[in-house]
């Protein structure tokens, strides 16, 4: 079995609301291998970003906490790691890029300064060498005329360029894992495609692993090796990307795939999922998707199903009373 770079086990993170602590992600377990891209998918409010912030230990404090579980990076638990040690991992071994390239760069510093800062902060290079390194990084993220861009301020750059700069900053520490929190959501579709291609190239070139957070199934199909579908803070289904698209088992996954708009269909044929993700202080007792589910049976509203493996290869698991049982009894495994 290949080495697991990151092992998340039973991770539970809670937030404090007026009337107590409520979990935003619960009992989350997944793994990430070297050179693998895992997509975390789900609609707004399902806990994707909280997962990333929990891994990076960047949750806003006070007001949130990790209740249980562990995040093993190279076998070392990041939960409860002293802040100083965590800080030396952030930006070097673990890097993160954000959704909003327009505001994620400091408006008062040049692009070069900002990239160079990461270099001399984590690698201890001299400022002069760091600037040279920044130039190489700008080249690496394919920014044209990188040498002149070095002295530009963020407002001189377009959204796509800024996201490239953010990626360059994230790459500066030679990360083993890149967490990308909806990195293309704020960009035009054409720019999206370029940035995705860039991330894909870089991942291969630098042998990084990536956790890619998105709600866009089209993006998932493009970048992911494996997909983890989240709903209401729980994992609903985990599968290799081909399996998931060919054979979505969880009703939520199915609904997500159906709701993707397609050019070859009329706009009226869009299939939105009725209802909203319940907020974290109003989670139902049983399966959290039950009230929006077309296939629910009595037990769904009573008890949360377990995440059970449904394929022989053990790489496709699902958390559903109806579909999970069906899939296992039919011996339906396409893996």
């Amino acid at each position: 079995m290949e080495e697991k770079l990151l092992v998340v086990e039973n991770l539970t993170t809670s937030f404090h609301l007026q009337n107590g602590w409520f979990s935003a992600i619960e009992d989350l377990s997944f793994t990430l291998s070297s050179n693998e891209t895992l997509a975390l998918v789900g609609e707004s409010g399902c806990g994707k970003s909280v997962t990333a912030y929990s891994i990076m230990n960047l949750l806003p404090k006070p007001g949130s906490r990790i209740d249980r579980g562990s995040v093993l990076f190279h076998g070392k638990d990041l939960v409860g790691l002293p802040e100083a040690e965590m800080r030396s991992l952030r930006g070097s071994k673990l890097a993160m890029i954000f959704q909003e390239p327009m505001t994620s760069l400091n408006p008062a510093l040049t692009v070069g300064q900002q990239i160079a800062e990461v270099l001399y902060y984590h690698n201890g290079t001299s400022k002069k060498e760091a600037l040279k390194g920044a130039l190489e990084l700008l080249d690496q993220v394919k920014i044209p005329a990188a040498a002149t861009r070095l002295n530009d301020y963020p407002h001189h750059l377009s959204g796509g360029m800024r996201q490239r700069v953010m990626i360059a900053m994230a790459l500066a520490g030679r990360p083993e894992i890149m967490l990308a929190d909806e990195p293309t959501t704020a960009l035009d579709v054409t720019i999206q495609a370029q940035v995705l291609a860039l991330l894909d190239d870089l991942k291969r070139e630098l042998k990084m692993s990536m956790i890619f957070i998105t709600h866009d199934m089209g993006v998932v199909a493009r970048v992911a090796d494996r997909v983890a579908v989240m709903y209401g803070g729980y994992l609903a289904e985990v599968a290799p990307v081909e399996n998931l698209f060919a054979n979505p088992v969880h009703p939520y996954t199915e609904a997500l795939l159906k709701s993707v708009p397609r050019l070859d269909r009329d706009i009226n044929d869009l299939n939105p999922i009725p209802g909203l993700v319940p907020s974290i202080d109003r989670m139902p007792k049983g399966c959290r998707f039950a009230e929006r589910c077309e296939h629910k049976i009595d037990v769904c509203e009573q008890q949360m199903p377990d995440l059970t493996s449904i394929s022989d290869a053990g790489n496709h698991s699902v958390r559903c009373w109806v579909r999970g049982a069906q899939a296992t009894s039919n011996g339906e495994s396409q893996a």
């Binding site: 952030r90 930006g91 400091n106 984590h122 953010m166």
Partner: peptide, 22 residues
């Protein structure tokens, strides 16, 4: 509370560096 401070934290910068440099 702006994004670039959050991003700085994700780059592993210390509070001192964020205050003085950013």
């Amino acid at each position: 509370n702006r994004d670039f401070v959050e991003a700085g934290r994700a780059m592993g910068f210390s509070d001192l560096r964020i205050m003085a440099g950013h």
